[in-house]
Design a protein around this nucleic acid. Structure first.
Lengths: 192, 192
DNA sequence: GTCTATAGACCGATAGAC
DNA sequence: GTCTATCGGTCTATAGAC
């Protein structure tokens, strides 16, 4: 720590700025300042803004999968693991560093930049669907639930929770969304 | 139609561009071109980009409330009205013209620009919470559900559904999220 | 009301010295 | 590898003629 190489610092600076300001709102100049690197330095190590953004997005996506797996791969029932995922600590008002990119027109317009975003959210839905299926197999959930649909609803609740929280300037709406979904998902006969 | 005044055309152009590119990604020049108005024209009618954006956002917010009320104010049970809201036709891949603004750093940084966004999503949650309460009163839903939480989950599912759809480039994930939530919310004893 | 002209800063990138 | 200089273009206005 504190001894990151210049490419490393550029990627980290880009990750921060993409999270906070999006792709359109992030300029090479701002990246260079945040990284403490010069113009020439940045263009020596990366082909340009899209290239650097791609490296940054890939790393952020990987980190997100790791954080999700840390809660989803834990022990317990299906409900407990989904619950752990939904209730894990989050910097709610900053939003999702991956999901927020979907609102960026230039990310969506570029197949290359959109790919890691798509793959990450798709992986997450698949991972959750598998857990829901396990819950169904154990008789934990109502038999009429469709794993892929429940998984999509779980991920959407998180992504939409960020929207509500940022709109209101408080994490409360995020927490309410998550509690609402969990109350609907709670195994029958559960008092919580 | 076809005879809009210049201020009117400027507002409509701004609404389109804010929806597609966000606040940061929308320039006065682009607005002028889309509206077919000159530089001087725009600055004659509006104080600047934030002023014009405020008018545009207010109108979009009003329109969104109207569209929601059209489905939520219809007849039927609570489940049917919530279902009608969730299943109404949407331009899914364009996202929510109000919700997408929450990812814009300059919207969030400005109390004035954020206000209509906050008020609209808050109104929607309140409106839905009232309907959930009616459903509880009618014994339609499990008694342990909390109206404000279910309402938040419903709105979050929609907002997050847009994120998933845009990430994957297809409306399918949005539809799956909605179906998942509805399957969880379905009154006990319902075959659907 | 609308036009053109102008402003100073920044945009994303390239060139070439060191 | 990093630096400074430079590029044509855009950003968000403002000024002033018509």
């Amino acid at each position: 720590m504190g001894f990151m190489s210049t490419p490393e610092r550029l990627i980290e600076a880009t990750r921060e700025l993409l999270w906070e300001r999006g792709y359109v709102g992030t300029s090479p100049k701002a990246i260079q300042q945040q990284a403490g690197a010069g113009q020439g330095s940045m263009y020596h190590h990366f082909a340009g803004k899209p290239d650097l953004a791609l490296s940054a997005i890939r790393r952020t996506a990987e980190e997100m999968r790791g954080a999700a797996e840390a809660t989803l791969g834990g022990g317990g029932t299906a409900y407990e693991r989904i619950s752990a995922y939904l209730l894990r600590e989050r910097d709610v008002l900053r939003g999702c560093p991956v999901g927020r990119l979907t609102m960026d027109p230039e990310i969506i317009a570029s197949a290359e930049l959109r790919a890691p975003v798509d793959e990450t959210l798709d992986w997450l839905r698949g991972r959750l669907a598998g857990i829901v299926q396990e819950g169904l197999d154990q008789g934990e959930f109502s038999a009429h639930l469709v794993p892929r649909e429940i998984a999509a609803a779980v991920v959407a609740t998180v992504q939409g929770g960020y929207v509500l929280a940022r709109a209101s300037g408080s994490p409360d709406a995020f927490d309410a969304s998550v509690r609402g979904l969990l109350s609907l998902l709670a195994p029958v006969g559960t008092t919580q």
